[in-house]
């Protein structure tokens, strides 16, 4: 396997992993939108009606985004949207942390310490790092083409 093929293979693996994470996060929330609604309310950023609508929209967006990240044709656009979404999540989590709210992030169904705000921030930073790697790899591929 040459360097170009290796680069492409690792990009696909990384994209599929990110896609699975989004798919898992979205699917968990889809199981109970009212529970996710409670999670959104706890952030104290949106009113109840907006939170309710978001609780029904965001899980589907995450699921579709996950599938798109695993699809070669849709990957560049999905990667851009996923990057923006992760940056937004990180901003929201940072605001929770700064306000000293002791809440569960609601990122995945199940909760527990894995859903605590500092851990969620760390997960987001790792995902952003993986996305940056993908951008750099796709840039390198374009330059070598």
């Amino acid at each position: 396997m040459n360097a170009k093929a290796k680069n492409s293979f690792s990009s696909v693996c990384l994209s599929v992993t990110l896609g699975l994470i989004f798919l898992l996060a979205g699917f968990g929330k889809l199981l109970s939108p009212p529970t996710f609604y409670q999670n959104i309310l706890e952030y104290r950023l949106l009113d109840s009606q907006s939170s309710w609508l978001l609780a029904h929209y965001l899980p589907w967006l995450e699921c579709l985004l996950g599938l798109a990240l695993m699809t070669a044709f849709l990957r560049p656009g999905a990667l851009l949207l996923a990057t923006m979404l992760c940056l937004l999540f990180l901003l929201v989590l940072a605001s929770v942390w700064l306000r000293g709210l002791n809440i569960s992030c609601g990122c995945f169904a199940g909760g527990g310490w894995l859903d605590s705000v500092p851990v969620a921030m760390l997960k987001n930073i790792l995902m952003l790092a993986a996305m940056t790697m993908l951008w750099v790899k796709s840039g390198a591929r374009l330059r070598s083409a």
Partner: peptide, 29 residues
């Protein structure tokens, strides 16, 4: 090189991904 990886197709995909969840979310609502 980062700018060059953002062709207009990306924007179409983003719009599609933002619009598509409206249908199933309307159903769950």
């Amino acid at each position: 090189h980062l700018i060059s990886t953002l062709p207009s197709r990306c924007l179409h995909v983003i719009l599609l991904l933002l619009a598509l969840p409206l249908l199933p979310s309307a159903w769950t609502l």
